[in-house]
């Protein structure tokens, strides 16, 4: 009974957490990752909202548990096909190598919105327009500077880049960017208390535990200025600053401002792997995400027998939510393996 197996595609937070839980119960797990390093999108972050917990620690704790002899990890393996045949779930990588198992778990996660698609914001055109991921990277190295190496005296964060945006075809909210902007603005101000930070938003959605507190603190302690309005255009000035045009929708007035650094809070989109493998198995939902059977108690199973889902391949989720979801998926998979 115990030699039953499961393939997990994607070794990010959800994939690793689920692998550990399933292996602890004595089943064989094949964990497949397309990149060299494990950890998925978690690798891109320095500290996590809302408590500034070290992202590296979360990642290491997850990876350290992978020692179980029931888990085989294959990194640098991009799965291009996933299907059920001869009573087995079969995953095929780009070298045509096959992995077989009794069940499959999709933890292919998300990718961030390509900010170049919003050409008017100047990403990829002007040096000092960066994405929230690049900001994290700078924070990791401890050097938040302009491309020219100067300390930014004014920085602006723009929310909803690629989220809640009909024009780019993403109507949904990515859920994590608001609080991430609050976190990054606070981090910035911790390093440069004399600089000014602005945050442009449509709504500040502080719906998680301690989010509101962090938001309040960012205003009271760090004097981050929140402006309700989207940025319509950004352009570089002769001295490489970024001039932004917006509307302060609370005062109803147009607004023009020059900042040293503009950070685009890029939203969450389904990853290519999510999109591809979900469509192959006809479980593709809205916006390229994978679709579970139902939200209430069926959120980890799909219309395909033996195919399970966990994490951000379904929708934008925070890291604690992803971990919880992975545990739930593991539970479902164990039940399933017991039955067959």
């Amino acid at each position: 009974m115990k030699n039953k197996s499961v393939i997990i595609i994607g070794a990010g937070v959800a994939g690793i957490e689920a692998a550990n839980n399933i292996a602890e119960n004595g089943y064989n797990v094949t964990l497949i990752e397309k990149e060299n390093l494990l950890g998925g999108n978690l690798k891109n972050y320095a500290k996590l909202f809302p408590d500034f917990y070290e992202a590296g620690e979360v990642k290491n704790n997850l990876i350290n548990k992978l020692n179980s002899e029931n888990i085989n990890v294959y990194n640098n393996n991009e799965i291009t096909e996933l299907f059920f045949e001869n009573n087995k779930w079969q995953a095929v990588n780009s070298q045509n190598q096959k992995f077989l198992a009794d069940a499959a778990l999709l933890t292919t996660g998300f990718t961030v919105f390509d900010a170049k698609r919003k050409e008017e914001l100047g990403y990829g055109i002007y040096d000092n327009v960066i994405t929230s991921l690049e900001f994290e990277n700078m924070y990791k190295t401890g050097k938040i500077t302009t491309k020219q190496g100067n300390i930014p005296e004014r920085i602006a964060f723009l929310n909803c880049v690629g989220s809640r945006d009909e024009k780019v075809g993403n109507h949904y909210c990515s859920r994590v960017c608001c609080i991430n902007a609050v976190k990054q603005a606070s981090e910035f101000k911790e390093i440069y208390p004399d600089s000014q930070a602005y945050c442009f938003y449509m709504d500040m959605r502080m719906a998680g535990q301690f989010y509101e507190e962090l938001y309040r603190k960012s205003q009271e302690k760090h004097n981050v200025i929140y402006i309700r309005g989207r940025i319509s255009e950004a352009a570089a000035t002769l001295d490489n600053k970024i001039q932004i045009k917006s509307e302060d929708t609370l005062s109803g007035l147009p607004l023009k401002m020059t900042v040293d650094l503009l950070v685009l809070m890029v939203g969450i989109e389904a990853s290519i792997g999510t999109n591809q493998l979900a469509s192959q198995n006809e479980i593709n939902g809205e916006y390229g995400f994978a679709k579970s059977k139902g939200l209430y108690g069926n959120d980890n199973i799909t219309n395909k027998k033996g195919l399970f889902l966990a994490g951000t391949c379904k929708r934008p989720l925070t890291i604690p939510e992803t971990i919880a979801d992975a545990k739930a998926a593991a539970n479902q998979i164990i039940k399933y393996l017991n039955q067959i």
């Binding site: 050409e119 008017e120 100047g122």
Partner: peptide, 9 residues
């Protein structure tokens, strides 16, 4: 065209 700055450049 201001919204497609690549053209201006």
């Amino acid at each position: 065209t201001q919204l497609t700055p690549n053209i201006i450049i």
